[in-house]
Write a protein that binds this DNA or RNA. Structure first.
Length: 483
RNA sequence: CGCGGGGUAGAGCAGUGGAAGCUCGUUAGGCUCAUAACCUAAAGGUCGUCGGUUCGAGUCCGACCCCCGCAACCA
């Protein structure tokens, strides 16, 4: 019997700008889910893909603007994103780059698969074209009928592009969604996605190469290149062997896909249509995380001046503390504000005062009284049952991808430990050494459990805590932060 | 009437018909093993507004007000 496999992928950030706090949220959530699954299923049965989306007009333009070669430009940003992962302890199994040779080949094979299904056709497309921008503008972008960047009136121009027959999959996709209602989180997205699918039309999937040299060549048509989304989306299957290793693909795909609010259309509708066209199974689970808003509750933007820099935050508090806040403090699926005061409060309350402090209380007392701890076999049954019932609740939450709720329950378990030690008073002179030993051994089991459950969230500190507990070394893991 | 989410104690949130809750913060007391940490208790809300259904509504229905996100490439 085949062992259960777990494959999770994030979306691939588009590398035309520096990583922002939202990327951190997605990466960190993904990493926490993956670490939990690796603990549960074993590392070899879990696969974690991240990467960067490196084609398209904006990158082409940006590189030109900066006066560097496209290759240098994308290499630099891919590296920025790799470093970014390291900053927040994100350990991916693969970093996918859409500029790679293998990606081009696989994407072309994907195209051919859709073409063989009769789902790709050529069509003339007309629109307002700005010569300065070298691209079509939408009505919305225009200011007084002029291009906002160049101040010129765009001209009507026609271009012939390839289109993907997405409309053909409208009904099949609705059917799929309706018979898989639990496939998307949060559940409130279900109606939204259903509406998106019910309104999907065919989409343009290529650009004229003359206008946009930076893209993957369309098979058998040297005048056209892939529209960036159409190649980028295929990465999720390419990375696990699409077109190169059928067995491997079957072993891993479908994946759990994590993405942001603006990506519901692409991941939930377009990509699902593409999969169906190519004869591949649909995504296993669609997780749409929330948006990190500014302290004022609005979307971060330079003009509002409410942008939180992940680099400044990391420098100030350390990657793990920021990570903890993103996972425990920021709502997992709903939009929520990033507030530094909340970060400090939550860190102090949960990690420093509750968990960290309890760890020291137990280690310190165990050493002072010279009693045995870390003996699981002698933990009091009723106490163990209590701890294990918390553990069950928490692992259920992890399995449901409810990260912030899981964190809340881990905190509740540590809190139970603090109440327990206060009530039992193992430091009291009235207690025999035997009683004291039992109380502290119970608590060491609780701490071991808390540490294990926290390890997907704060992996480095969890390691240190495990070590400290085993060696009975007193350690200030989480120094209190000033407000 | 573009689509969607939301308005519950100072802050952040849970709660979808039956005695208003949680965390942080605040105040008071206790403890003293511990990172001025921990424990207990208290104060603090006419659940956006108005109307309706019901024996009973934060919870259902209607209208309205306000906030936020999205609307073919910013997670």
């Amino acid at each position: 019997m085949r062992k259960e496999k777990f494959y999770l992928t994030t979306t691939l950030p588009y590398v035309n700008a520096e990583p922002h706090i939202g990327h951190a949220l997605e990466f960190v959530q993904a990493d926490a889910i993956v670490r939990y699954q690796k603990n549960k299923l074993g590392k070899e049965n879990v696969f974690f893909n991240v990467g960067t989306d490196e084609h398209g007009l904006k990158i082409y333009q940006k590189a030109k603007e900066e006066g560097v070669s496209i290759q240098d430009f994308i290499d630099k940003y891919a590296q920025r994103f790799k470093d970014y992962c390291k900053l927040f302890f994100v350990e991916y199994d693969n970093f996918y780059r859409t500029s790679s040779e293998e990606h081009s080949i696989a994407a072309q094979k994907f195209w051919n698969a859709c073409a063989e299904k009769g789902d790709i056709y050529k069509k003339k497309y007309g629109g307002l074209y700005c010569v300065g921008c070298e691209r079509f503008l939408t009505e919305k972008e225009l200011v007084d009928g002029k291009c906002p960047d160049h101040g010129t009136v765009p001209e009507y121009k026609e271009e012939e592009n390839y289109f993907f027959r997405l409309s053909k999959y409208r009904e099949p996709l609705l059917k799929w969604l309706d018979s898989n209602k639990g496939i998307i989180k949060p559940a409130t997205c279900y109606d939204e996605l259903r509406k998106i699918i019910s309104e999907i039309e065919d989409i343009s999937i290529s650009r004229v190469k003359e206008n946009l040299p930076w893209g993957i060549d369309v098979p058998d048509d040297p005048t056209q290149v892939f529209y960036v989304w159409f190649d980028a989306l295929t990465n999720y299957v390419n990375v696990v062997g699409y077109s190169t290793d059928e067995d491997r693909l079957k072993e891993w795909w479908p994946a759990v896909q994590l993405f942001g609010p603006d990506n519901l259309r692409f991941q939930g509708a377009i990509w699902q249509g593409m999969l169906e066209s190519a004869g591949l199974p649909h995504t296993k689970m669609l997780l749409r995380h929330g948006m990190v808003l500014g302290e004022d509750g609005r979307k971060m933007s330079k003009s509002l001046g409410n942008v939180v820099s992940p680099f400044v935050q990391e420098e100030k508090y350390g990657g793990e503390v920021v990570r903890f806040y993103l996972l425990a403090g920021i709502s997992t699926f709903a939009d929520s504000s990033y507030k530094e005061s909340d970060l400090v409060n939550m860190y102090n309350a949960r990690l420093a005062n509750n968990y960290g402090n309890l760890l020291n209380r137990v280690i310190h007392l165990a050493n002072a009284k010279e009693v045995e701890i870390n003996n699981e076999s002698t933990v009091e049954t009723s106490f163990k049952e209590r701890v294990d019932s918390y553990k069950k609740t928490i692992t259920d939450l992890y399995d449901a991808y409810e990260l912030s709720s899981a964190c809340e329950q881990i905190d509740a378990l540590a809190d139970y430990g603090n109440k327990y030690i206060t009530e039992k008073e193992p430091w009291s002179k009235d207690k025999t050494l035997e009683e004291c030993g039992e109380i502290l051994n119970n608590l060491s089991y609780l701490l071991k459990t808390v540490t294990e459950l926290y390890s997907p969230i704060i992996p480095v500190s969890a390691d240190k805590a495990r070590n400290a507990l085993e060696k009975r070394e007193k350690i200030i893991l989480f120094p209190t932060l000033d407000k």
